[in-house]
Each structure stands twice: as structure tokens, then as C-alpha cells.
Design a protein around this nucleic acid. Structure first.
Lengths: 118, 118
DNA sequence: ACAATAATTCAACGATATTTGAAGAGTAGC
DNA sequence: GCTACTCTTCAAATATCGTTGAATTATTGT
């Protein structure tokens, strides 16, 4: 991942609204959600949500699929994994031992629900 | 890591200048750099760099230490690892299998120099 | 005490980003 | 074709961010 892509993704996640939208969609998995569902779950005006959805989609964090008159949004996990790799490598550059330490303690599949309440 | 901390960190890394500063300091490891060195390496006006250094420091991505009339900045790796954990867990929420897959392919200590040229 | 150096703070300007309501495009059902 | 519905686009207002030069604080060496 290059710096330009990284900054675009960071800029996306720097907005509390967009972070909430992304987290919500990650939680939904492959099922995703249509725009209206996101709007009511997050209590956002449709026009404002649309602005953020466009932003997230253009950054590659979401994918869209038309379903009749609905638009279904899904989180795009691969880009997220690329970002994690990017950060991991940046961190490791000076401290490989800390990085390995991190990898040993990140129990990804067993602790996924720990931070649900926010 | 809570959403507020996460958005503050993302906002920091969303600026190309700050991302460059952070990457540079990660590369320096525990030695860090004083403000003037960063300014000349990145070709930034002192006043502008100071603005971004303050931003990074307040977000917790950098630490500062006074050395006479110099100020030495260092990357704060632990917060970075927290962020990586945060992202990993967010990603895993819907796709634990993808996350494990990522961890299997992220060879942190051996591929640290692959993306040096950007 | 004085001048030189290092870096920050301040104030002002320009550029971006966010929010909102009104209008527009496309779809579904009658 | 018409109406209801879903969502997006547009335009305008507000808010926030980034950059710059001048002034300020603090330290060093004479």
C-alpha cells in the first residue's frame, strides 16, 4: 500500500460517523445493509449518510450493490487487511521484536466481541 | 481502544505530512530525531512542522524529550500496536477466517524494508 | 548581560470538510 | 402513466484544518 492510499483510508476513518458506519457494516459481514437501514440504526439524515457512504466507497472501504431501488453496502475487508499490514510494517521498521510480541498476543478470532459496546 | 482515541489517531495519520513524520521517526527507532533534523530531512518550514508535531504528540503517536535547547521526538509504538489490534478486531468481527489468514501471511520481521521507497 | 540558536505560539488567510434542505434520478407497484 | 419510495446530487452555510510570517519562550556560549 502506498502513502496516498493509506492517507485516503485514514482520512475516511478519521470521521466518527464514517468509523461508526464501517464498524456497523463489518459487524454485518457479507449480508451488509441497505442505506436506509444504516441511516435508522445510526440515526443519521439520509443526505448526510449518503455523503459519507460515497466517501467510504470511493476510498475502497465499502462495496455497493443495487437491489431494486435499494443500495446494499458491505465492508471491503481486503483493503482493511492491507492497511493493517501497512501499519504493521511501519511499526516493525524500528522494532521488530515489539511487532512479533504483538502478533503473539492478538487473539483475533476469540476476542472479537470484547469491544462491542461503543 | 475506544472510538474517540481511534478517530484522533486516524485524523493524525490522514495528513501526508504527519504520516511522513511518523514513518521517519519509526525508522529512527529509539534514537528518534530533534525537530530541526526532521524539518531539514522532510524540507518543511519549522513553524509548520511544529504544528504537526504538536498534533502527533497530543494524539499520543509521538513522545518528546527536551535535550538542552533541542526537542527530541520519538515514535510511540505501543499506541500503534493498540491501533493495529483495534483494526484487526474490527475486521475480524465479520470474518475471523480472513483475519487468521492475514496473521499467517504478515511476516513482520522479515519484510520490514519492502515498502521503503515511497 | 548579550547575542545566537532552537523551537513554539499567535494571528490571519486560504483551502477542505461537514451538514442541511431542496431538487433530481431511478425503481416498484397499481 | 402515475404515485410512492429509496437514495443521491446539488448548492449554500458553517465549521474545521493547514500554511505562513512575525513575535515569543527558552537555552547556550561568550
Amino acid at each position: 500500500m502506498d502513502n496516498i492510499t493509506a492517507t485516503r483510508v485514514f482520512e475516511c476513518l478519521a470521521s466518527p460517523v464514517r468509523l461508526d458506519v464501517f464498524k456497523l457494516l463489518v459487524k454485518q459481514g457479507p449480508a451488509g445493509l441497505v442505506a436506509g437501514e444504516i441511516a435508522s440504526l445510526l440515526n443519521l439524515p439520509a443526505t448526510n449518510l449518503s455523503f459519507h457512504l460515497k466517501n467510504l466507497t470511493q476510498a475502497g472501504l465499502l462495496s455497493v450493490e443495487q437491489e431494486g431501488r435499494y443500495l446494499r453496502y458491505r465492508a471491503d475487508i481486503p483493503l482493511m487487511l492491507e492497511l493493517i499490514n501497512f501499519l504493521t510494517h511501519e511499526c516493525c521498521a524500528g522494532h521488530p521484536e515489539l511487532c512479533l510480541d504483538f502478533r503473539a498476543t492478538s487473539n483475533c478470532s476469540s476476542e472479537q466481541d470484547k469491544e462491542a459496546g461503543n
